[in-house]
Amino acid sequence: MSTQSNVKIDRVIDARGSFCPGPLMEMIRAMKAAQVGEVVAVLSNESGSKRDIPAWADKSGQEFVGIFEQDGHDQIVVRKVK
């Protein structure tokens, strides 16, 4: 699977319908389980995720790849780098 930026996604977490701070915590949970180098995507329709997940990636030193608008939701992508 690839996004518009052609990044290979290793894990996709569908957090649609999960409200604040649901998608953020789903991303954190997935990143804990991921291996270094893996790319995690969270699908979210909760607007705060677009602000909170990049801020969390910045604070935790992980690589924020991008936010990709899809059919009625966002795909928010982070790479585990440490």
Partner: peptide
Amino acid sequence: SPLPRVFPIE
């Protein structure tokens, strides 16, 4: 707090 703020609701 695990969240970006002190309480889940902004």
